[in-house]
Write a protein that binds this DNA or RNA. Structure first.
Lengths: 332, 332
DNA sequence: AGCAGAACTGTAAACGTTTACAGTTCTGAG
DNA sequence: CTCAGAACTGTAAACGTTTACAGTTCTGCT
């Protein structure tokens, strides 16, 4: 049966089946094996409960069957959806997922990234991160395939998944049509990448519609409920706006909170709209009208792209732009 | 500089520094090295940008410096908090985290568990999972350390983190004192482990207070907003209850949704209370009064316990019971 | 200076795979 | 039946580490 110490190895299986380790290895890896041996090997594998040792395999074959997902912050529901998507995309492959959140200091993130060079992962899925030159440099130098999600501007050709930049056009057009041109935009911090992009998107959208005069932007210090509440509280003429466009669903939750505690009805008195279509959108009351970026699908695709790229490094680079989609619910 | 192909190895560093690979290895692993060599080795490591290869190390040293976290469902905010906690607990160690969600069929989970036997992880953090005998058996047989969180009943001595069973006593006592003895309990599905435990907890609590007559339990088909709304909708005399105790924060979100769309004020007309104190509690309006189970801390502790256990397999088993804590906010 | 013992270093053997390569068996056409 | 070539098998050499073990240098005491 089992060896006295530890798990069965190829050698054990080979001995038991009376064949060479090469044959067992080939059998395990799905190559053709003489039918007369097949049965014996299969038997031995089952009797000994053989499972290939990952380290041995990784060392020799130079592939770990692991990929790493680096997300800015797992508390944000949109990253949770992406994580879930990646998991789904990995199903049916034999790749496992490491989760490397950028929770900590730039130094820690840097160390994380650099440690990828120790070959514990065959590829990296990277989400937009803090704008740190050292980190960017480190990422660019990594010698494993990368797939980027969102507007990650590193100087390296990677498969990427972006969202088409017209999300705010869709949103603003909708609010303008339904609630008129008094639209307030509550952005997240401008020093973040989404903050920049979504801010610019709003400006562009109102300019296109020629309603700059009647609209306004305010900035929440963080992408959080409290930040949004604070930003709205400090606003003088809030009640003159008919709709509030929020830079993401969490900020929209903050807006709902602010209005609910001030007895202002949504959407009767003021409409509220989010971006991301996270789980939050259906949990909140009223449920959130929002722009879907299809996070799960993006995660799934990213995983698939990465596995493809690992298996075929020289394939042409894929760049996908997913189309944002309006999801009407009760808040606007 | 670099070798022509791939990354620098111990050999490369050793050759460049004019020492043996053993010395370099020892240096890398923090053992004492003659001061005269130290400088040269350090230099060579930096010049070649040497990073130890994980596979080689794992193969020889029989440790991967990876642990696996198996969670029932990453969409549930409480598991997100635990995940975050585990990440925090791992900070400062050199362990990485694999995330293995039990999203899929029992077969898939079983395969996941079994694949842990291929030694890609040094330990497992296991959260309460579906009650499948095969899976339990597989887990019990795993030859790596396990830390369990919650009421996982496997037949094996493990370090564990449970929540003291008096959470519902605290909650019911609070609601009874503040809103009277007409309390409705909205449980999750009884076939889940939390469903069973929390249901029993509620029954025990109202019995202790002698208010069984005026209270009632209903069951939501799933731990979701929609499930809760449905359960409440189908209830005849809902308006006779002064407070609604929910089996978790997501169900509480459903209750808030139901009441808000029926123009019933919370907490003026009816109080609502959740369990878990997830991020949701502060995102919802009104913010949720809930029972804190300290998910982040439990995750952190679980990670620390696991790393300790890996480093010292024969230490006495640790069983921690965390104390639930009432968090008063606006909903009750 | 001599010497015992401490402190370090280098050699070489693993760890469990995959995979060139050479050797063997099988297949089917002549 | 023979034999060329296809199809498979086994041997042995990696992959990059860690670590016993034996050999070397250092330290401090006599």
């Amino acid at each position: 049966m089992d060896k006295t110490h530890g798990r069965a190895t190829l050698h054990d299986v080979a001995r038991k089946a009376g064949v060479s380790i090469a044959s067992v290895s080939r059998m395990v890896n799905g190559q053709t094996v003489r039918p007369s041996l097949e049965g014996r090997i299969q038997d031995a594998i089952e009797k000994l409960n053989y499972q290939a040792n990952s380290a041995g395999r990784a060392l020799r074959a130079r592939r770990t069957e692991q990929i790493c997902l680096s997300v800015p912050d797992i508390s944000n529901p949109v990253y949770q959806s992406i994580t879930k998507g990646v998991q789904l995309g990995l199903e049916g492959t034999n790749y496992r997922m490491m989760l490397a959140p950028q929770v900590s200091s730039a130094e820690d993130v840097l160390r994380q990234i650099n440690s990828l060079n120790s070959n514990y992962a065959d590829g990296l899925i990277l989400l937009s991160l803090v704008d740190d030159t050292r980190i960017k440099k480190a990422v660019e130098k990594l010698d494993i395939p990368i797939v980027t999600i969102g507007n990650v501007d590193i100087n390296r050709e990677t498969d990427s998944l972006k969202v088409a930049p017209n999300a705010l056009d869709i949103a603003v057009e909708y609010l303008n049509r339904k609630y008129g041109s008094r639209i307030l935009f509550v952005n997240g911090p401008k020093e973040t990448i989404p903050g920049k992009i979504r801010g610019a998107g709003f400006e562009r959208a109102i300019k296109n519609l020629g309603i700059e005069k009647t609209c306004k932007s305010v900035e929440s210090k963080t992408f959080s409920v409290e930040g949004a509440v604070e930003a709205l509280t400090s606003l003088a003429n809030l009640n003159s706006y008919k709709s509030v466009m929020c830079a993401n669903d969490v900020i929209a939750a903050g807006a709902l909170r602010y209005f609910s505690s001030n007895k202002i009805r949504v959407p009767e008195d003021v409409a509220v709209m989010g971006i991301d279509n996270t789980d939050l959108a259906t949990i909140l009351s009223p449920s959130l009208t929002t722009i879907d970026y299809n996070a799960i699908e993006r995660g799934k695709l990213a995983a698939k792209f990465l596995v493809d790229r690992i298996q075929n490094p020289s394939a042409p680079v894929k760049r996908i732009e997913v189309q944002p989609r309006l999801v009407e619910r009760d808040s606007a």
